[in-house]
């Protein structure tokens, strides 16, 4: 077990993160304090939640480009309900956001499952449809901080046992996903369906239905993230989190989740998201223009995918006897 872990991509990523922290600390010693690291984690929580949803979809050989639009739509609906129907309890709003997100994910899933439309086409389409729907609902208007109830805004920031609720939530999602992926038949089915869809059919797994479940999961996470995003930044409008779907895919790729499906782990996705989160938080403190963030994450994605590809590359067959010991 230990040797397997030592060779794993998760460890490689952990080393990379440590190296990154060392470099940042050398320029700015204050970065590595516990308080600041907790802050970075809190700041990355939403990305972690989304990356875990995207991971499941990518594992089944699909992709969800509509995640950020889904997030924005659910966030807007939660904010508008909070504004127009002031009496609704905040927890109910969270629940509504999650259910709505799951339903939107289910639309993606149904189109992929029942109509066999390629996932990239489906989610490209629903992405624009979801964004457009926000406009139809809000008429293009913003819901600002003063239009939201105090509890609505403060829930993710509330401190419980020294950590914000947002951090606790993402931690809970991580643990839940560890259990789901490792301990439930559905979790293993995600791997099987993406690793070898053909064989999955013969083993009695329903490939389409499994993908449907993956989309429901990513949709539900997007819905939860929608509420968290809107309440944390205390604003909701059509374009919130625009383009964030690519950050989410990037976190997965950096975390070693193979775009070809079937390969990837929960710790990998979490570390991938954290890697991006640390870069984002470290740039200002080491006096690099925040405008450089995009170029840096682009470079990191390319390096990550190159490293992953090297690890996945199949070695040629070993036929010669003398070569057996070398290989």
């Amino acid at each position: 077990m230990l040797t397997m872990f030592l060779r794993s991509r998760e460890l490689l990523l952990l080393v990379a993160i440590a190296a990154l922290l060392v470099v940042v600390t050398w320029r700015f010693p204050g970065f590595i304090t516990l308080a600041n690291l907790a802050n970075v984690y809190n700041d990355t929580s939403i990305l972690i939640i989304l990356a875990l949803g995207q991971m499941v979809v990518i594992l089944t050989r699909c992709i969800d480009l509509s995640m950020a639009a889904n997030l924005a739509l659910c966030g807007m609906v939660a904010a508008m309900l909070n504004f127009y129907v002031p009496g609704l309890p905040v927890l109910l709003l969270v629940l509504i956001a999650v259910v709505l997100g799951t339903a939107l994910g289910a639309i993606n899933g149904l189109l992929v499952w029942k109509l066999d439309i390629p996932p990239i086409v489906v989610t490209l389409g629903t992405m624009t449809i979801f964004r457009g729907t926000i406009f139809l609902l809000s008429g293009g208007a913003w819901i600002n901080a003063h239009q939201m109830s105090d509890l609505f805004k403060s829930l993710p920031r509330g401190i419980v046992a020294g950590m914000p609720v947002l951090s606790w939530l993402s931690l809970a999602v991580i643990i839940a996903m560890l259990v789901v992926m490792r301990r439930t038949p559905t979790g293993r089915a995600f791997y099987a369906v993406g690793g070898n869809p053909h064989a999955a059919v013969y083993t009695g797994l329903d490939v389409g239905y499994t993908r449907f479940k993956a989309y429901c999961l990513s949709g539900g996470f997007a819905g939860l993230a929608g509420y968290l995003w809107v309440s944390r930044y205390a604003v909701a409008y059509v374009d919130i989190a625009a383009g964030f779907e690519l950050d989410v895919v990037a976190a997965c790729v950096i975390g070693g989740i193979s775009i070809a499906g079937g390969v990837g782990t929960v710790p990998g996705a979490v570390l991938g998201a954290l890697f991006l989160g640390i870069i984002k938080n470290a740039l200002p403190v080491v006096n690099i223009s925040p405008f450089a963030q995009m170029a840096i994450s682009g470079t990191v994605i390319i390096i990550a995918v190159a490293v992953n590809a090297r690890a996945e590359r199949r070695k040629g067959r070993v036929i010669l006897k003398r070569a057996e010991h070398v290989a």
Partner: peptide, 15 residues
């Protein structure tokens, strides 16, 4: 894989 590479270069070029 081109889908990942070009998501990366997309950030790199615009970045």
């Amino acid at each position: 894989p081109s889908i990942v590479v070009t998501i990366g270069t997309m950030s790199l070029f615009r970045g």
